[in-house]
Design a protein around this nucleic acid. Sequence first.
RNA 1: CUGGGUGUGGCGCAGUUGGUAGCGCGCUACCUUGGGGUGGUAGAGGCCGUGGGUUCAAGUCCCGUCACUCAGACCA
Length: 480
Amino acid sequence: MAKDKKMVTEITSMDEDFAQWYTDICKKAELVEYTSVKGCMVIRPYGYAVWENIQKILDGMFKATGHENVCMPMFIPESLLQKEKDHVEGFAPEVAWVTHGGNEKLEERLCVRPTSETLFCEHYANIVHSYRDLPKLYNQWVSVVRWEKTTRPFLRSREFLWQEGHTIHATAEEAIEETERMLNVYAQFCEESLAMPVVKGKKTESDKFAGAVSTYAIEALMHDGKALQAGTSHYFGDGFAKAFGIEYTDKSNKRVNPHQTSWGVTTRLIGAVIMTHGDNNGLVLPPAVAPVQAVIIPIAQHKDGVLDKANELKKRLSDINIRVKLDDSENSPGWKFAEYEMKGVPVRVEIGPKDIENGQCVIASRWNGEKVTVSLDELETTVQQKLKEAHDGMYNKALENQKNRTYACTTLDEISKTLEEKGDGFIKAMWCGDEACEDGVKEKTGVGSRCIPFEHEQLSDKCICCGKPAKYMVYWGKAY
RNA sequence: CUGGGUGUGGCGCAGUUGGUAGCGCGCUACCUUGGGGUGGUAGAGGCCGUGGGUUCAAGUCCCGUCACUCAGACCA
């Protein structure tokens, strides 16, 4: 079987129309359904199961690093939102307001949280009094609302699910360490669970979170060469603490402001998975978060013993904690093959009368289309091995794509030429640190700064835009 | 927000100079079906996104509005 052969006709080819391909997968793989409110989508069981798996793994990582879950209200009074100047300026244009309770107009309108810094700050002001109260390492899994103009399933919706971590520390050092720790947790999660390589780095001044001292991000490169911010971690210094009057008494009996962080990832990660691993036959899910890791397709299922054997295989895989599904519906085997390919199930097990006779089954891998016939004795080991191979193979393929689409440039013309000849991707180029040059690059080439990566490379000594001494090496790109 | 495109059974589409809706898939029943979306017979299902207008008559023409979508701007 040819590797690139398209066998699922429901999905538009990505080379034909990438945007349509993406939308097709979202709908045909039954991840989402639209509603009558723009930018608000139903996350269907199959899509939500992916999110649940993401949640489960990440939550475990948060707990392992000492965090506790809490839940803040969804309404923020206007006066509270106003307290930190940069923060409110950053979010005001996209908040939704509640103005009435029943028929009565509210004395003060309430904003539907776009993020919960203000709520956490109000709370911390109440409960932090002594250095003994610190740190507080909180996280919450909730939804937030941002009234976006352009919306797309998972990538940018008006309401979306996320987790937001909010921590408060006695010292700046501790808070900075936390900011970095969580960025690393995200990067590790993306690599180990989503098989998605990311670039870790710092955001430029103009791109940082409203109210933050510094913002860090993980950036991933999608199949079409566009960049996607997959997660962020912010260091706040004591700015929010000052604005919200959070103070504690330190060991030397002085009243001081604590230091804070926040960090988050959203359901956008699902969009990232779609656009990192998906192909022309549909979704390709990383085994760690796939709702179904192995699907069993019985062949000639009406014949004696086939379904019994299929059920037996199901039990055996289930017993070793593989998320397994047996499709014994009336659809033809071919229909089922296409269906589960579209849905990105990592491994397919085919079992028919011939196989039973020979004591074997056929195992197919979604990510590379490979099919093998194995003895039934080796079912468990082979499926486990194929899942492992899928993860590694998907990661390496994505990493290779990222590398192949990352270009080092030393002049603006070179950037434009590269984009034109090779298509979108990450551009590595030097920058002086001046915002005017950052804007200049965007204006002249169309790519914006994505991040200043932790792994510095001295590509040249001069800023690509103004020619003055360069301070940073920056990843640039078109973004979602 | 600006500009373009699209809204007709569950899905994908057709519908001429305005005359009261048609096809494929899917669905239901029965039969058939061995390895890439089986084949057959019969049947059910839509008032055309939504609000107004023109007209004897509107899916079709006009205006508004909502949603989807593409490009951009904006934003994280």
